[in-house]
Design a protein around this nucleic acid. Sequence first.
DNA 1: CACAGTAGTGTGAGCGTTCACATCGTATCA
DNA 2: TGATACGATGTGAACGCTCACACTACTGTG
Lengths: 338, 338
Amino acid sequence: MKGRPGRVDRPTIIDVAREADVSRQTVSRVVTNHPRVAPATRLRVEEAIATLGYRPNRMARALVTRTSLTFGFAAIDMRDLHFGDTCLGMQVAAREHGYFLVVTELDFDDDRGMGTLETLLTLGVDGVALFPSLLSDADIEQFAATCGCPVVMIGRESKIPNVVSIAMDENAAAALIVDHLVDRGKMRIGILMNEMFPEVVHQRYVALRQAIGSGTGVALDVEAGYPKIAEGRIAATTLLQRSPDLDALIGFNDTMAMGALLACDDLELRVPQDVAIVGYDGIPFGALTNPPLTTIVQDSIGMADAAFRALLSGLEDGPPPEGEVMLWEPELLIRGSS
Amino acid sequence: MKGRPGRVDRPTIIDVAREADVSRQTVSRVVTNHPRVAPATRLRVEEAIATLGYRPNRMARALVTRTSLTFGFAAIDMRDLHFGDTCLGMQVAAREHGYFLVVTELDFDDDRGMGTLETLLTLGVDGVALFPSLLSDADIEQFAATCGCPVVMIGRESKIPNVVSIAMDENAAAALIVDHLVDRGKMRIGILMNEMFPEVVHQRYVALRQAIGSGTGVALDVEAGYPKIAEGRIAATTLLQRSPDLDALIGFNDTMAMGALLACDDLELRVPQDVAIVGYDGIPFGALTNPPLTTIVQDSIGMADAAFRALLSGLEDGPPPEGEVMLWEPELLIRGSS
DNA sequence: CACAGTAGTGTGAGCGTTCACATCGTATCA
DNA sequence: TGATACGATGTGAACGCTCACACTACTGTG
């Protein structure tokens, strides 16, 4: 296990000190840009650093400073547009502020993802931003209570002690969709729910239900499935066959909505004349379906930015003892499918 | 900067030792599953660990063992299907072997991505897998020479000292496509190239050119653009207007190919009768276009697995001094567009 | 019954870095 | 000219952990 041939030692601060004929502390001062170093010395040290190819060891530094200048980011799947965009946004924000973002994908099988989060902590991150997915509010609360660093949850609106929750305003989104559909004369709405991630899904469902309920005389039916195209197609078919008078379908996400598009094609229903279809997420391919998909878009980059700032200020002033919720306004991107 | 309110100290091995009334070494032995601990002691220590919520500090451990059980993974965009799949695959492989995968997105602006890689190193990773994108072979060679750990490059076939290169066999892929097109009676082929990432692009272009050149009397035209739908559409339009007799288009990736699909629609050309279209990548939405897209798929998970194993064996036996290339067979997924 | 072997445990040192403090030399001022 | 200040540098300790070794008590053996 030791002395692995593949692992070669990198030069340390001591090597640089020897090379430049100064003490390690002087090298440290040069590296951390401390002002009180004589220009000539600084130059000599910088040359030594360049010749040896020295890079300070972040772990050793973190050990003594108790700060790693590193944040963790966890979500189940970076290929997902919203997760991926947010990840990218946080990465950019982090770099601008001298932080490094350690990204990891949550492993469901490892205690719903808690294991992955714990491992992330052992890496010494100064804060964690995460999409909860399968993790319950109780999981998050427990994690925030024991992790010893700021925690930001993105994508679920929940007031959890010591946690900043950043989420899209589901009620506003639901209202945008339902108002739009009613505006188009649609009065019998079907919903394609996601059978995974009960808590996020539930918020969206409750919001839609409430928005529909407040529209006068709008009917509602629901079917759930795995949030992919094929399963969306099946769920939509089931729904349309069970309630043939439906004149609008709302997909939990664009992928399911695209499945609904296919289902309408299968059943020879015209979109949007017979059935209007709306999704969530604003994935690029939604612009290319036939007809292009009307969808709810959220400002992933803006949320990423807010998440980063929340971590930073959590570090400065401590986390909000009673939790804090930041809601983001959704936007309805109206295209041909509605 | 110190004593930040947001950062609370976690218990250390000493706290656990005190709680269980043993020495730190005994706690260490319990944590690392050393056999020579009396069952009763082990139990007492485990209880102390549970009460205190202790987790070993990976950085401190790595500092002394010179092994972090951590690999780095870098690519420009995890939302990209191939990058994302490979990332996921490596993550799974890593977890199975007790490793943690630190994922990061390469920042072009930071010295073409070299800065990001250097930062990754300072985190103490035991090895790095990366998609080179903008990094040249020379960049990679230099990185491998100075990083002191195994390096695996995915997605470009290059024999670089100390680097294992894992890539799809571009010649095989090009042959699959061209043979297929010729088989369908297509003799005038247009290529939509990617204007980014010169080196990867070049390999694909050379392979296609060569495959086309070996087909008797097949004509060729090329246009380049940013590898997205809108730009693919523009490039395809340019190409089809410049060479109206083209009867097939090959997109550098599925996204460009989908742009080509739109261009054909614009120009009222039937696909595949007038123009056949083939892409690369096998993105899920390719199955939903009209007609569905014929495409080259590569085994991302298999490559991820190989990459992980290459890192492990690089650690055991040292990196290959002269470099090593592992080629993966592509598969042609024939759908309606050809 | 002395000797070795071994299971179980503890101790000092050190991984690479920064912090707090000490030391030195030189310039500044009354 | 002596006191004072400050700029430039170096030294010991510590961060949390594991390694190598030392130590103690058994157990078994001839």
